[in-house]
Computed example of a mutant assay.
Amino acid sequence: MTTPRTSGFGPGLRLRHSRDFSRLRQGGRKIHTRHFVIYLLTRPDGSCRLGLTVSRKVGGAVQRNALKRFLREWFRLTIGELPPHTDISVVARSNAGNLGFSDVREELKCLAHPGSCHGGQP
């Protein structure tokens, strides 16, 4: 018997439309890290939402899907520490394919704790 999850990554927490991604790229703040380019855009209402872009340049399907799972889990665990009403788009660079969960968590901790980014300031 499995226990139900108390928090997940439901549709209300996802960026799902291309217009949302375009709005982030055009009007959002851009942060460069070693393995990711992160776009942030504050909205007037609603919860924090996450959008992921992981292309085939990152690696095969196994690597891409693992990286997306790590990114979603990072978001699920840190959503309470992230700026409210913010859309976040994470674009994986080609060298991100071999990252583990601890690597992802370490590199993205700057979003929850400003000033700890090595590649840029939020």
Rank of each mutant, 00 (worst) to 15 (best):
residue 90 V to G: 04
residue 69 R to F: 10
residue 115 G to A: 05
residue 73 E to R: 02
residue 115 G to R: 02
residue 13 L to G: 01
residue 87 D to R: 09
residue 6 T to Y: 10
residue 96 A to C: 07
residue 59 G to E: 06
residue 97 G to H: 14
residue 10 G to H: 06
residue 39 Y to D: 00
residue 47 S to T: 14
residue 86 T to K: 07
residue 69 R to M: 12
residue 66 A to V: 10
residue 23 R to C: 07
residue 104 V to G: 05
residue 100 G to Y: 02
residue 119 G to D: 05
residue 23 R to E: 11
residue 4 P to F: 08
residue 26 Q to L: 12
residue 99 L to D: 03
residue 55 S to R: 06
residue 75 F to L: 14
residue 29 R to I: 03
residue 87 D to M: 12
residue 118 H to M: 01
residue 71 L to P: 01
residue 15 L to G: 07
residue 91 V to L: 13
residue 34 R to Y: 10
residue 53 T to L: 04
residue 19 R to K: 08
residue 6 T to C: 13
residue 33 T to D: 04
residue 112 A to E: 00
residue 93 R to T: 00
residue 20 D to T: 14
residue 97 G to Q: 14
residue 120 G to A: 15
residue 12 G to V: 06
residue 59 G to L: 08
residue 79 I to T: 10
residue 112 A to T: 08
residue 82 L to N: 01
residue 18 S to Q: 10
residue 61 A to Y: 02
residue 70 F to V: 02
residue 32 H to R: 12
residue 82 L to Y: 07
residue 120 G to R: 14
residue 25 R to A: 06
residue 63 Q to M: 08
residue 109 K to R: 15
residue 74 W to N: 01
residue 47 S to H: 11
residue 102 S to F: 10
residue 30 K to Y: 07
residue 64 R to D: 12
residue 24 L to P: 04
residue 119 G to Q: 05
residue 17 H to A: 13
residue 84 P to C: 13
residue 63 Q to W: 01
residue 62 V to T: 15
residue 29 R to A: 12
residue 59 G to V: 05
residue 38 I to K: 05
residue 17 H to P: 01
residue 43 R to D: 00
residue 60 G to Q: 11
residue 2 T to F: 11
residue 70 F to G: 01
residue 76 R to H: 08
residue 115 G to H: 05
residue 69 R to Q: 09
residue 104 V to E: 04
residue 107 E to W: 06
residue 102 S to R: 15
residue 113 H to D: 06
residue 57 K to N: 15
residue 24 L to H: 07
residue 74 W to T: 01
residue 24 L to T: 08
residue 76 R to E: 06
residue 32 H to G: 09
residue 38 I to F: 06
residue 78 T to C: 12
residue 59 G to Y: 04
residue 111 L to R: 04
residue 26 Q to G: 01
residue 42 T to R: 05
residue 120 G to H: 10
residue 85 H to W: 02
residue 1 M to G: 15
residue 19 R to T: 13
residue 75 F to I: 15
residue 116 S to H: 02
residue 10 G to A: 07
residue 35 H to K: 13
residue 81 E to I: 08
residue 25 R to M: 03
residue 53 T to A: 00
residue 100 G to M: 03
residue 16 R to W: 04
residue 18 S to A: 10
residue 75 F to M: 12
residue 61 A to C: 05
residue 80 G to N: 13
residue 42 T to I: 00
residue 102 S to M: 14
residue 68 K to G: 03
